[in-house]
């Protein structure tokens, strides 16, 4: 056997902004992917030292443990209000919230609509996995018709339990929202597209163009009762038809952005 001196080329490594700790997220959950994408974007933009994150309540309540940026922890649903307070006083800083669907689209609907309508210069990373993950998989505002959860044990009956909220479509109607898109994390191609959207969202904030939000369809294998691979398929088969991927709001100024 001949030892050869092969020059190494790093093709993949942990972004320095992410803390090298053991994850508390479940196997197959895409929160980790979303964290990484945000971390990569902040590094690529040179924004790590200039950023303040706002964690929410839900599985991502500990998001602040993973990011080596200044962080605060909001009350359930109130991250956009808290972020408003920070951003208004520190307008040169980049401020983002990281919220799940129960947090943002149920208890925090007032705060997200308020922030978006005011055109707050915030970036919102919105994780939609169709259930309350942290508390063990209850019905969320995004739970699909017929979907079984611990609080819709016979499947969500829309006549009794209402219809899922399509958050991006709803927020896109607001003038203050400059950039509202839905992406998914269920395969490599969509992950790459999601990263591009996250980059755009932070650029929109940096350039002062308005409120930006990226909705990310995410997996929750534990509460869906599926394997990691099955969960990714479930996103494709069940979630995509109700939550179509796409650009729901691109303001004229954002459309002119050359990234």
């Amino acid at each position: 056997m001949v030892m050869m001196d092969v020059p190494t080329k790093v093709v993949y490594e942990r972004p320095a902004v992410l803390d090298p700790r053991v994850t508390h997220y479940c196997p197959g959950c895409t929160h980790g992917v979303a964290h990484r994408l945000v971390g990569e974007v902040l590094e690529e933009m040179g924004e790590v030292g200039n950023t303040i994150g706002v964690a929410s309540v839900g599985c991502s309540v500990f998001a602040y443990n993973y990011f080596n940026v200044d962080f605060v922890e909001a009350a359930h649903g109130r991250a956009p209000a808290m972020a408003t307070g920070i951003k208004r006083l520190l307008p040169e800083r980049t401020v983002f919230t990281y919220q799940g669907d129960g947090d943002l689209a149920s208890i925090g609907m007032g705060e997200i609509v308020g922030a978006a309508s005011r055109g707050e210069l915030l970036t919102v990373i919105f994780i939609n996995n169709t259930n309350y993950g942290m508390t063990g998989g209850q019905m969320a505002p995004t739970t699909l018709p017929g979907q079984v959860t611990t609080s819709s044990p016979t499947g969500r009956d829309v006549t009794r339990q209402g219809h899922p909220i399509q958050t991006s479509e709803l927020l896109a109607t607001l003038e203050g929202a400059a950039y509202v898109v839905r992406r998914s994390l269920h395969n490599v191609r969509e992950v790459r597209r999601a990263k591009k959207a996250i980059r755009t969202a932070f650029e929109v904030q940096k350039k002062g163009l308005g409120f930006s939000l990226v909705e990310l369809l995410s997996t929750c294998p534990t509460n869906w009762g599926l394997s990691a691979a099955e969960a990714r398929e479930w996103v494709e088969e069940r979630m995509l038809p109700y939550f179509p991927l796409g650009d729901y709001k691109i303001s004229p100024a954002v459309a002119e952005l050359d990234l």
């Binding site: 109130r78 307070g85 208004r88 006083l89």
Partner: peptide, 23 residues
């Protein structure tokens, strides 16, 4: 900074965030 919030809930949580800046 002056913000008329969407509710008192919004207002106090804006105060919460703003207070985090030490001002």
């Amino acid at each position: 900074v002056f913000v008329q919030a969407e509710s008192e809930l919004g207002a106090i949580n804006m105060v919460y965030g703003a207070a985090c800046t030490g001002k």
